[in-house]
Design a protein around this nucleic acid. Structure first.
Length: 614
DNA sequence: GGCGCGTGTCATGTG
DNA sequence: AGCACATGACACGCG
């Protein structure tokens, strides 16, 4: 009964190696080492059962002890803090029930008879009773203990009081002054108690198991998740850096335990350190806080009359009610978690599994198209298998679709901001698309708007069928990338058909545009060619007329010269030749002959003689 | 209401 | 054969 049932069969070295191999194979899929660890699961299961059984006892005992504790406290009128009554005489002196020896303190405490093991909360309560001033347990325990012990700090605060801000509850100012070597020594001895170790180091009771898988699992967890979350926004729960104060080892050990251990009523004495506070300490991102814990927190606040500031985000769907460990696993698998806005400190819902994308990203499931009726008619089944479209929410045609999607995702956890920014992202154009045809005066760029309207038809079809890509992507991606995208997403037949149609139409549209552009370019080219040809024609005609004129002039000169030469020719009798009877002809070799015209051609050709001008 | 223009889409041809 | 692209033809909306 003292120990959690250690499994009879400890994993052999071979088993551990096999587990290691399997885990390394699946680590990319988000599988954690504990998945393969039967011992771990058995222990966790047993621990959960035990915690449930102890819960009722524990709560009742806790109230009584807190009541007793409050009796030992008095309100410091100067600082407004509750301090132990004996402190007036010595800061480092433990309260009356305690003795100088911390071990004696423990021995004086009434342990539950018949239950020789202490629960974690019991230990914390014990610490609170024993060392009311040593609230800064996280500091004392350093990295060996997560900030959980710090929650006992607030057992000093009357639970009936309205929960003050955590900062005001911070006990650090007191501790810093009053902690000393003696206190540290006491803590160290206290820490060595087997009950405490049993409670706080559940994983340590099997060194073989711990050393077997922790070294491999820690880095992954650390780098894959927690260190990327906006831990800086976490409430100050007494530790410096939540990451440091809450090592992933510890988170691993408790993440699967505490989501079932969270009680519907205050366990730590302060509402702020109920499940929500606990989650805030570990997982500043509320999405990582188990919904059960949140609900429990709501319940406890209702009971105490204090309504916590709950994020006005839509109710989480069935997915979001998964255990914390599951959510963490999803976060590990979801790289998007790394790009979330670290300033928000609010639920970003990094995993589409955790809740439906429609709900988680846009809250109202409108995809941001608040005025789109057809969108409202869409079937937003949170549990549908198609809810895995983490990037399907940007079906507009902005070139930075994904950036906006990422932005939208990153802002999804801020309900108010989301309401404001959503229209900015999507309303402008849809407003034109949906209402532009029936309302409003026409503008100069109506043509462009009409084009957008036509574009939006495919967009709306894509939305209706919940195509997880933008029309731009479908149309413009290279073939290989497109095919790869198709293979990555399991689309049903109508979706595939629509995607193909969208791509075909988009391609053809671009082709038609190019074709018309080429046609226009051809027309312009032909017109230019026509102009140049016309100009050339005019030039040629001018040249032709000039050539004709020149030719006529040369002909005239030639006839003049001919007559001049002919007139100088004389026959044997000294008479000039009649131009009507003779003509001058020139051979190819340049010789000139006087040739009788027609009827005397033969006779003259026989006795022709070279004409001599001389 | 007809007309011209721009655009999307389909059917078909081409490489 | 399958694919992407080109192009003619048609429909539609708009000024």
């Amino acid at each position: 009964m003292m120990d959690i049932e250690v499994p009879d069969i400890l994993p052999s070295q071979q088993d551990m190696e096999l587990i290691d191999i399997l885990w390394r194979q699946d680590v990319d899929l988000g599988a954690r080492r504990e998945v393969f660890d039967q011992n771990h699961r058995q222990k966790v299961h047993a621990l959960q059962r035990r915690s449930e059984q102890e819960e009722e006892k524990k709560q009742q005992r806790l109230r009584d002890e807190q009541k007793a504790l409050l009796d030992q406290l008095q309100l410091d009128e100067e600082t407004g803090e509750y301090i132990p009554k004996p402190l007036a005489s010595g800061a480092l002196t433990p309260p009356p029930p305690a003795t100088a020896n911390p071990l004696a303190v423990i021995q004086n405490v009434n342990f539950p008879e018949g239950d020789d093991s202490l629960s974690f909360d019991e230990c914390m309560q014990l610490l609170a009773e024993t060392f009311p001033l040593a609230e800064d347990t996280s500091a004392c325990l350093d990295s060996a203990v997560p900030p959980v012990p710090s929650s006992d700090t607030h057992s000093l605060t009357p639970s009936k009081q309205p929960a003050p801000p955590l900062a005001s509850l911070s006990p650090v100012p007191i501790i810093a002054d009053r902690r000393g070597p003696e206190m540290d020594q006491a803590w160290m001895e206290l820490w060595s108690l087997p009950e405490l170790q049993h409670c706080l180091n559940l994983q340590m009771e099997d060194p073989l198991e711990t050393t077997a898988y922790l070294p491999t699992s820690i880095p992954d967890v650390q780098e894959g998740n927690y260190t990327y979350y906006p831990l800086s926004n976490a409430p100050n729960v007494g530790g410096p850096n939540p990451v440091e104060a809450c090592p992933p080892t510890f988170i691993n050990a408790f993440e699967e335990v505490f989501h079932d251990m969270v009680a519907p009523e205050p366990m730590m004495g302060d509402a702020n350190l109920g499940p929500k506070g606990f989650c805030d300490a570990f997982y500043p991102d509320p999405v990582l806080c188990p919904p059960e814990a949140v609900e429990a927190n709501v319940m406890e606040h209702k009971e105490s009359g204090i309504l916590p500031e709950l994020p006005k985000k839509p109710p989480l769907n069935a997915h979001s009610h998964s255990p914390l460990g599951e959510a963490l696993e999803r976060c590990k698998q979801e790289p998007m978690a790394e790009v979330h806005d670290s300033d928000s400190g609010v639920s970003l819902n990094p995993s589409p599994h955790a809740s439906s994308p429609e709900k988680s990203v846009y809250g109202d499931g409108s995809f941001g198209f608040s005025d789109s009726d057809d969108v409202d008619d869409l079937d937003f089944n949170p549990g549908s298998a198609e809810s895995d479209y983490s990037e399907m929410f940007s079906l507009n045609f902005q070139p930075d679709d994904f950036q906006q999607s990422a932005l939208a995702l990153s802002q999804a956890g801020q309900p108010e901001a989301q309401q404001d920014k959503k229209p900015k992202l999507h309303n402008a154009k849809p407003a034109e698309e949906e209402g532009g045809q029936s309302e409003g005066p026409f503008t100069k760029d109506k043509q462009k708007r009409r084009s957008e309207v036509r574009l939006s038809r495919d967009e709306q079809r894509a939305r209706a069928l919940r195509i997880p890509f933008t029309v731009d992507m479908i149309t413009n991606l290279p073939v290989d990338d497109f095919n790869e995208l198709m293979s990555k997403h399991q689309l049903n037949e109508p979706q595939l058909a629509l995607v193909r149609d969208i791509r075909r139409r988009g391609k053809n549209k671009v082709a038609a545009q190019n074709c018309r552009k080429r046609k226009m370019e051809n027309i312009v080219g032909l017109e230019y060619e026509l102009d140049s040809l016309t100009e050339e024609k005019e030039l040629l005609q001018t040249e032709r007329s000039q050539n004709g004129s020149s030719l006529r002039k040369m002909k005239h000169q030639l006839s003049t010269l001919y007559l001049q030469v002919f007139s100088m020719l004389r026959d044997e009798e000294g008479k000039p030749y009649s131009p009507s009877d003779y003509s001058l002809q020139q051979t190819t070799d340049g010789s000139v002959f006087l040739v009788p015209r027609t009827k005397k051609t033969h006779a003259k050709s026989k006795d022709h003689k070279p004409a001599s001008a001389d």
